[in-house]
Write a protein that binds this DNA or RNA. Structure first.
Length: 264
DNA sequence: ATGTCAGGAGTTTCCTGA
Protein backbone atom coordinates (compact mmCIF):
# COMPACT_ATOMS: atom_id res chain seq x y z
CA UNK A 1 0.00 0.00 0.00
CA UNK A 2 1.86 3.05 -1.31
CA UNK A 3 0.81 6.26 0.45
CA UNK A 4 2.15 9.46 -1.07
CA UNK A 5 2.13 13.14 -0.15
CA UNK A 6 2.53 15.63 -2.99
CA UNK A 7 2.32 19.41 -2.73
CA UNK A 8 1.27 20.20 -6.29
CA UNK A 9 1.49 24.00 -6.19
CA UNK A 10 -1.73 24.30 -8.21
CA UNK A 11 -3.72 21.24 -9.32
CA UNK A 12 -4.82 22.80 -12.61
CA UNK A 13 -1.37 24.03 -13.55
CA UNK A 14 0.00 20.61 -12.55
CA UNK A 15 -2.69 18.35 -14.00
CA UNK A 16 -0.36 16.64 -16.54
CA UNK A 17 2.16 15.94 -13.74
CA UNK A 18 -0.59 14.60 -11.47
CA UNK A 19 -2.10 12.25 -14.05
CA UNK A 20 1.37 11.11 -15.09
CA UNK A 21 2.22 10.34 -11.47
CA UNK A 22 -0.98 8.33 -10.95
CA UNK A 23 -0.32 6.30 -14.09
CA UNK A 24 3.37 5.71 -13.45
CA UNK A 25 3.43 5.10 -9.69
CA UNK A 26 -0.13 3.85 -9.11
CA UNK A 27 -0.28 5.05 -5.50
CA UNK A 28 -2.96 3.50 -3.29
CA UNK A 29 -3.39 6.86 -1.55
CA UNK A 30 -2.27 10.27 -2.82
CA UNK A 31 -2.48 13.19 -0.41
CA UNK A 32 -2.51 16.53 -2.20
CA UNK A 33 -1.66 19.99 -0.93
CA UNK A 34 -1.87 23.46 -2.45
CA UNK A 35 -4.53 22.54 -4.98
CA UNK A 36 -5.19 26.31 -5.17
CA UNK A 37 -8.74 26.09 -6.49
CA UNK A 38 -12.34 26.33 -5.32
CA UNK A 39 -14.15 23.03 -4.69
CA UNK A 40 -16.08 23.25 -7.96
CA UNK A 41 -12.90 23.84 -9.98
CA UNK A 42 -11.19 20.64 -8.82
CA UNK A 43 -10.53 18.49 -11.95
CA UNK A 44 -12.23 15.38 -10.61
CA UNK A 45 -13.31 14.18 -14.07
CA UNK A 46 -9.71 13.99 -15.28
CA UNK A 47 -8.79 12.18 -12.08
CA UNK A 48 -11.67 9.72 -12.48
CA UNK A 49 -10.56 9.08 -16.07
CA UNK A 50 -7.22 7.99 -14.62
CA UNK A 51 -9.01 5.48 -12.36
CA UNK A 52 -9.04 7.46 -9.11
CA UNK A 53 -11.67 8.90 -6.82
CA UNK A 54 -11.17 11.58 -4.25
CA UNK A 55 -12.27 13.89 -1.50
CA UNK A 56 -10.99 17.45 -1.31
CA UNK A 57 -11.29 20.73 0.54
CA UNK A 58 -10.53 23.63 -1.75
CA UNK A 59 -10.30 27.39 -1.50
CA UNK A 60 -10.16 29.96 -4.28
CA UNK A 61 -6.59 30.92 -5.10
CA UNK A 62 -4.66 29.46 -2.18
CA UNK A 63 -4.17 26.42 0.04
CA UNK A 64 -6.46 23.44 -0.52
CA UNK A 65 -5.96 19.73 0.28
CA UNK A 66 -7.27 16.41 -1.00
CA UNK A 67 -6.98 12.63 -0.79
CA UNK A 68 -7.18 10.36 -3.86
CA UNK A 69 -7.40 6.57 -4.12
CA UNK A 70 -8.10 3.95 -6.80
CA UNK A 71 -9.85 1.72 -4.22
CA UNK A 72 -13.13 3.64 -4.17
CA UNK A 73 -13.82 7.07 -2.73
CA UNK A 74 -11.89 7.68 0.51
CA UNK A 75 -14.30 7.66 3.45
CA UNK A 76 -14.33 11.26 4.60
CA UNK A 77 -13.83 11.71 8.36
CA UNK A 78 -13.32 15.45 8.65
CA UNK A 79 -12.49 18.66 6.80
CA UNK A 80 -10.56 21.25 8.74
CA UNK A 81 -8.64 20.96 11.98
CA UNK A 82 -10.61 21.43 15.21
CA UNK A 83 -9.74 24.08 17.74
CA UNK A 84 -10.39 27.37 15.93
CA UNK A 85 -13.80 28.05 14.33
CA UNK A 86 -12.42 31.31 12.89
CA UNK A 87 -9.76 29.51 10.83
CA UNK A 88 -10.94 29.84 7.21
CA UNK A 89 -7.90 28.22 5.53
CA UNK A 90 -8.36 24.84 3.81
CA UNK A 91 -5.39 22.99 5.26
CA UNK A 92 -6.60 19.65 6.61
CA UNK A 93 -8.71 16.76 5.35
CA UNK A 94 -8.99 13.31 6.88
CA UNK A 95 -10.37 10.11 5.38
CA UNK A 96 -10.08 6.35 5.68
CA UNK A 97 -8.75 4.05 2.97
CA UNK A 98 -8.48 0.29 3.47
CA UNK A 99 -8.65 0.57 7.24
CA UNK A 100 -5.93 3.25 7.43
CA UNK A 101 -6.81 6.75 8.63
CA UNK A 102 -5.15 9.31 6.37
CA UNK A 103 -4.65 13.00 7.15
CA UNK A 104 -3.58 15.34 4.34
CA UNK A 105 -1.89 18.37 5.87
CA UNK A 106 -0.86 21.74 4.51
CA UNK A 107 0.72 23.47 7.46
CA UNK A 108 1.04 27.27 7.39
CA UNK A 109 4.33 28.55 5.98
CA UNK A 110 4.65 31.19 8.69
CA UNK A 111 6.84 33.73 6.89
CA UNK A 112 7.69 36.41 7.62
CA UNK A 113 8.70 35.76 11.19
CA UNK A 114 8.18 37.12 13.72
CA UNK A 115 4.63 38.26 13.02
CA UNK A 116 1.00 37.16 12.85
CA UNK A 117 1.67 34.55 10.15
CA UNK A 118 4.28 32.89 12.35
CA UNK A 119 1.93 33.00 15.36
CA UNK A 120 -0.75 31.33 13.21
CA UNK A 121 1.73 28.62 12.23
CA UNK A 122 2.63 27.82 15.84
CA UNK A 123 -1.02 27.85 16.91
CA UNK A 124 -1.86 25.51 14.03
CA UNK A 125 0.92 23.12 15.07
CA UNK A 126 -0.51 23.07 18.59
CA UNK A 127 -4.01 22.35 17.25
CA UNK A 128 -2.55 19.56 15.12
CA UNK A 129 -0.84 18.08 18.19
CA UNK A 130 -4.11 18.05 20.12
CA UNK A 131 -5.97 16.38 17.25
CA UNK A 132 -3.13 13.90 16.69
CA UNK A 133 -3.39 12.75 20.31
CA UNK A 134 -7.05 11.85 19.73
CA UNK A 135 -6.03 9.86 16.65
CA UNK A 136 -3.42 7.94 18.67
CA UNK A 137 -6.05 7.24 21.31
CA UNK A 138 -8.12 5.41 18.66
CA UNK A 139 -5.32 2.81 18.34
CA UNK A 140 -5.78 2.37 14.60
CA UNK A 141 -3.25 2.74 11.77
CA UNK A 142 -2.89 6.46 10.98
CA UNK A 143 -0.70 8.28 8.46
CA UNK A 144 -0.46 12.05 8.83
CA UNK A 145 1.03 13.07 5.49
CA UNK A 146 1.71 16.47 4.10
CA UNK A 147 3.69 19.64 3.70
CA UNK A 148 4.55 20.49 7.32
CA UNK A 149 6.63 23.53 6.34
CA UNK A 150 9.06 22.58 9.12
CA UNK A 151 12.67 21.48 8.60
CA UNK A 152 13.13 18.98 11.45
CA UNK A 153 16.86 19.46 12.18
CA UNK A 154 19.87 21.58 11.24
CA UNK A 155 21.57 18.55 9.72
CA UNK A 156 22.75 18.85 6.11
CA UNK A 157 20.61 15.76 5.57
CA UNK A 158 17.56 17.99 6.14
CA UNK A 159 18.68 21.38 4.81
CA UNK A 160 21.23 22.53 2.23
CA UNK A 161 22.34 25.56 4.25
CA UNK A 162 21.55 26.45 7.84
CA UNK A 163 22.85 29.95 7.21
CA UNK A 164 20.62 30.60 4.20
CA UNK A 165 17.56 29.49 6.14
CA UNK A 166 18.43 30.94 9.55
CA UNK A 167 15.73 33.63 9.47
CA UNK A 168 13.10 31.49 7.77
CA UNK A 169 9.95 30.40 9.61
CA UNK A 170 10.53 26.85 8.35
CA UNK A 171 13.61 26.43 10.52
CA UNK A 172 12.96 28.47 13.67
CA UNK A 173 13.62 26.67 16.98
CA UNK A 174 9.95 27.16 17.94
CA UNK A 175 8.80 25.46 14.71
CA UNK A 176 11.18 22.54 15.18
CA UNK A 177 10.27 22.17 18.86
CA UNK A 178 6.57 22.08 18.01
CA UNK A 179 7.14 19.34 15.42
CA UNK A 180 9.22 17.37 17.96
CA UNK A 181 6.44 17.66 20.56
CA UNK A 182 4.05 16.20 18.00
CA UNK A 183 6.37 13.35 17.01
CA UNK A 184 7.18 12.52 20.63
CA UNK A 185 3.54 11.62 21.25
CA UNK A 186 4.52 8.36 19.56
CA UNK A 187 4.67 9.06 15.82
CA UNK A 188 7.30 7.66 13.45
CA UNK A 189 8.85 9.97 10.83
CA UNK A 190 8.76 7.43 7.99
CA UNK A 191 11.57 8.91 5.88
CA UNK A 192 14.05 9.13 8.76
CA UNK A 193 13.09 5.75 10.18
CA UNK A 194 13.85 4.14 6.83
CA UNK A 195 16.83 6.38 5.93
CA UNK A 196 18.53 7.50 9.17
CA UNK A 197 21.38 9.18 7.27
CA UNK A 198 21.76 11.01 3.99
CA UNK A 199 19.97 13.93 2.33
CA UNK A 200 16.23 13.38 1.88
CA UNK A 201 15.16 16.73 0.48
CA UNK A 202 11.56 17.07 -0.68
CA UNK A 203 11.52 20.74 -1.81
CA UNK A 204 13.71 22.86 -4.05
CA UNK A 205 12.87 26.52 -4.59
CA UNK A 206 12.16 27.77 -8.10
CA UNK A 207 14.56 30.67 -7.54
CA UNK A 208 18.34 30.93 -7.44
CA UNK A 209 18.89 27.77 -9.49
CA UNK A 210 18.09 25.74 -6.36
CA UNK A 211 17.26 22.48 -8.14
CA UNK A 212 20.47 22.45 -10.20
CA UNK A 213 22.52 23.21 -7.07
CA UNK A 214 20.58 20.62 -5.02
CA UNK A 215 19.77 23.47 -2.61
CA UNK A 216 16.76 21.77 -1.09
CA UNK A 217 15.31 20.89 2.26
CA UNK A 218 13.01 18.34 3.87
CA UNK A 219 9.55 19.61 4.78
CA UNK A 220 7.16 16.96 3.43
CA UNK A 221 6.67 14.30 6.10
CA UNK A 222 4.67 11.13 6.73
CA UNK A 223 4.07 10.51 10.42
CA UNK A 224 2.98 6.96 11.25
CA UNK A 225 1.00 5.85 14.29
CA UNK A 226 2.42 2.73 15.98
CA UNK A 227 0.04 0.38 14.14
CA UNK A 228 1.04 1.97 10.81
CA UNK A 229 4.75 1.99 11.68
CA UNK A 230 4.57 -1.75 12.39
CA UNK A 231 3.56 -2.24 8.76
CA UNK A 232 6.19 -0.01 7.12
CA UNK A 233 8.10 -1.77 4.35
CA UNK A 234 9.87 1.18 2.72
CA UNK A 235 9.81 4.96 2.32
CA UNK A 236 11.34 7.46 -0.06
CA UNK A 237 11.19 10.56 -2.22
CA UNK A 238 10.29 10.35 -5.93
CA UNK A 239 12.87 13.01 -6.58
CA UNK A 240 12.99 12.82 -10.38
CA UNK A 241 9.50 14.36 -10.67
CA UNK A 242 11.00 17.64 -9.41
CA UNK A 243 13.19 17.76 -12.52
CA UNK A 244 10.42 17.34 -15.05
CA UNK A 245 8.85 20.00 -17.24
CA UNK A 246 6.48 22.37 -15.42
CA UNK A 247 7.22 20.59 -12.15
CA UNK A 248 5.96 21.49 -8.71
CA UNK A 249 8.63 22.82 -6.36
CA UNK A 250 7.95 19.76 -4.15
CA UNK A 251 8.72 16.10 -4.92
CA UNK A 252 6.26 13.29 -4.10
CA UNK A 253 7.23 11.67 -0.80
CA UNK A 254 5.97 8.20 0.12
CA UNK A 255 5.71 5.28 2.47
CA UNK A 256 4.94 1.66 1.60
CA UNK A 257 2.88 -0.24 4.17
CA UNK A 258 2.20 -3.93 4.22
CA UNK A 259 -1.18 -4.46 2.53
CA UNK A 260 -4.26 -4.89 4.65
CA UNK A 261 -6.41 -7.91 3.80
CA UNK A 262 -9.15 -5.92 2.07
CA UNK A 263 -7.04 -4.26 -0.64
CA UNK A 264 -6.18 -6.56 -3.54
C1' DA B 1 21.67 36.09 -1.74
C1' DT B 2 19.12 35.56 -5.43
C1' DG B 3 14.84 36.05 -7.89
C1' DT B 4 10.48 31.92 -10.15
C1' DC B 5 6.15 30.29 -10.05
C1' DA B 6 0.63 30.15 -9.64
C1' DG B 7 -3.72 32.38 -9.30
C1' DG B 8 -6.75 36.47 -9.19
C1' DA B 9 -8.28 40.82 -10.55
C1' DG B 10 -9.56 42.85 -14.49
C1' DT B 11 -7.67 44.44 -18.45
C1' DT B 12 -2.38 43.35 -20.26
C1' DT B 13 0.28 44.01 -15.80
C1' DC B 14 0.45 44.21 -10.93
C1' DC B 15 -0.71 42.00 -6.51
C1' DT B 16 -0.27 38.15 -2.87
C1' DG B 17 1.65 33.95 -1.22
C1' DA B 18 5.25 30.87 -1.23
Amino acid sequence: MKIVTYNLNGVRARLPRLIEYLEEQKPDVLCLQEIKCADEAFPIEDIKAAGYEGVWHGQKGFNGVGILSPHGEPKLRRMGLPGDPDDTHSRYIEAEVGGVVIGSIYLPNGNPQPGPKFDYKLAWLERLREHAQHLLDEEVPVVLAGDYNVIPTESHDDVFSVRAMAQDALMQPESRAALRRLIHQGWTDAIRARHPDGPAYTFWDYTANAWARDAGFRIDHLLLSPLAADRMLDAGVDKDYRGREKASDHAPTWVMLEDPADIA
